[in-house]
């Protein structure tokens, strides 16, 4: 049973159809990439999967493989925080870290749904508050380790370089203990070294059993980490398959990769 089933999803903005009748599946412990030229509908699709936006037609079904008791839910009927609680973690294309907090506290925010201490506990520093705080810190440090940021816990978030900001967003999302991790252009703006570190991290997360769906422009990165690739063009799915198949799919090359692909570099 797949982790994510996108079924005939359509999303229109005014007269523009950003995503048109797209269907695909993501299977457990798989890294799946969504690629396509600018304006192909990738981010719209991501927002639908993380329940920030709702499709006009179709369904987005999610079942958390890490929690066997959980039923399948339709993300089209869910709010973003409920989607997160159901097991969907995500990062953002434009860094959305909390600059006012330390790296560790950023990740502790990801533990929110695992705590129950409310305002009263916080105000009065009840025992539950202290206990949960210790638990949150422990889990946050683990998440930082998994994202390869274990040594940066005490740093101020806004002093991190871009590459580590992306890793921090990943750590924060991992702290929610997601069954499906959505990465929105994780390699954007990174240099080769940072991209390599990111690829390692993403593969390690997959090997831990977390399913990954990512949107990316960096073809080298996509081809290196993905198990499967979906190609969107003008909101429609034009191809799906292994990186090898996508590489040689004439329609993809024509629609998207073009001559640039031969040079192994796609201009943004």
């Amino acid at each position: 049973m797949p982790v994510l089933r996108v079924e005939g999803v359509t999303r229109r903005f005014g007269g523009v159809t950003a995503v048109k009748e797209v269907s695909f599946q993501v299977h457990e412990a798989q890294i799946k990439a969504v690629i396509g030229p600018n304006g192909a509908g990738k981010t719209t699709l991501f927002n639908l999967v993380s329940a920030i936006d709702r499709p006009d037609e179709g369904r987005v079904l999610f079942r958390n493989p890490l929690r066997s008791g959980d039923a399948q839910i339709d993300l089209a009927r869910t709010s973003p925080h409920q989607a997160s609680r159901a097991g969907i973690g995500r990062t953002f294309q434009h860094s959305q870290i909390f600059e006012a907090l330390s790296v560790l506290d950023n990740v502790k925010v990801g533990r929110h749904a695992h705590g129950r201490a409310g305002l009263l506990s916080a105000f009065l520093t009840l025992p539950r508050q202290r206990r949960e705080e210790a638990e949150a810190e422990e889990a946050a440090r683990q998440a930082l380790q998994r994202a390869g940021l274990g040594d940066r816990a005490e740093t101020e978030a806004d002093s991190l370089p871009l590459g580590e900001r992306h890793l921090l967003e990943i750590a924060r999302a991992l702290a929610t203990e997601p069954g499906l991790l959505l990465l929105d252009e994780p390699a954007a703006g990174l240099n080769n070294e940072e991209t390599e570190r990111l690829a390692e991290t993403v593969r390690r997360i997959r090997d831990d059993g977390v399913t990954v769906l990512l949107v990316e422009h960096d073809m080298g990165f996509v081809m290196e980490v993905s198990d499967e690739v979906v190609v969107l063009d003008y909101g429609e799915k034009i191809a799906e398959g292994s990186p090898l198949m996508i590489r040689s799919n004439p329609e993809v090359i024509r629609a998207y990769l073009g001559e640039d692909y031969l040079a192994e570099e796609v201009p943004r």
Binding site: S79, P80, H81, S84, F92, F98, E99, L119, S121, E133
Partner: peptide, 24 residues
């Protein structure tokens, strides 16, 4: 420095990211 306090700081910075981390 509590769960609720951090949630407030998070939603102040960006409500969408806060929600994506499970914050109501």
């Amino acid at each position: 420095r509590t769960r609720t306090g951090r949630a407030l700081i998070a939603l102040h910075r960006t409500e969408i990211a806060a929600a994506s981390l499970g914050i109501d």
